[in-house]
Design a binder for these strands. Sequence first.
DNA 1: CATAAGTGCAACCTCCTGGTTGCCTTTATC
DNA 2: GATAAAGGCAACCAGGAGGTTGCACTTATG
Lengths: 114, 114
Amino acid sequence: MSSNNTAHETAPQFAAHVFAALGDHTRLSLIEKLSDGQTRSIAGLSVDSHLTRQAITKHLHILEEAGLVISTKVGRESQFAFKPDTIEEVRAYLDSVSRQWDDALSRLRAFVER
Amino acid sequence: MSSNNTAHETAPQFAAHVFAALGDHTRLSLIEKLSDGQTRSIAGLSVDSHLTRQAITKHLHILEEAGLVISTKVGRESQFAFKPDTIEEVRAYLDSVSRQWDDALSRLRAFVER
DNA sequence: CATAAGTGCAACCTCCTGGTTGCCTTTATC
DNA sequence: GATAAAGGCAACCAGGAGGTTGCACTTATG
């Protein structure tokens, strides 16, 4: 939980930032599309959406700023690609929360059983 | 990815809903506190916050509606507890995204190596 | 019983978010 | 070179999110 955190946020701040980016069904569907490893242009990502290209563009920039996606400009179009690192960091964060829960459970169990 | 999904949302909708609930640092810190397994009242959760009790209440209701937390009224106070099931479902969702990515990677590798 | 503690409810406010439209710039393509 | 395709930028708008204040209600407590 640090390599992508360029803004020197604390772990929860970073996680909240990424969660906020994931907390929109349009953005989440963009992530799902790109997680197949293929690279897509803005027009390509907008084609089967009822939203405007500008709306998709805004969502992509939010995803990029959160570190979930990366873009490179090739020719007249900018290609967007999934960036799995940040997802991994967020998974690790959720693991830490779950681990605290599991530890609390086992402490409780030990207390009950003695 | 279904047991907590009472509103019959699709998996991505459910996940986006939970992510949106997690995408606020105040709510995330509430989750962190409660993930130690202890039960806390609204006043107890508001005591070391610069926010109003009402603000904390609103956040708790959002967390509860997302299935991340559960409340039971005991006496004059309502006790909030962490509910780990939903976190588990979201972790599973992130796993599915990562798995699609991994599959895409290995297909690419197989293609390159032949 | 009087009072304090813990909440719930509703109104209100400000600012951000998601979305649109319009227009201009840059690349391809015929 | 003219035209089409892809995108960037800025202004604008409605609605929701986060937060506050005020007050009423319920449950403990001295």
